[in-house]
């Protein structure tokens, strides 16, 4: 399960997208959870995963964002 959690908080562009890509490359149906702390990362990951046909759900709490990515 821990495999599907990507913590990209504090990472600068484009590392959050690359980390998400690595997780989605081995996607087997389990939701991938990505944690980031910048809106730019949220937008870039949403666009990237969206282009691949994934559904992205964003939750915000205390300036951190949790993205739940699934097909």
């Amino acid at each position: 399960m821990a495999y599907n959690i990507v913590d990209a908080r504090g990472r600068s562009c484009p590392e959050p997208v690359i980390m998400t890509k690595e997780a989605l490359d081995i996607y087997k149906g389990e939701t991938v959870e990505v944690k980031v702390d910048a809106m730019v990362a949220v937008e870039n990951i949403k666009r990237y995963a969206g282009n691949l046909g994934f559904i992205v759900e964003v939750e915000e709490s205390n300036n951190d964002y949790r993205l739940l990515i699934r097909k």
Binding site: R9, G10, R11, S12, P14, E15, I18
Partner: peptide, 12 residues
């Protein structure tokens, strides 16, 4: 380098 894991590490 990015593909091989290049990172400047986390900011705080």
């Amino acid at each position: 380098f990015l593909k091989k894991g290049f990172t400047l590490g986390k900011s705080t």
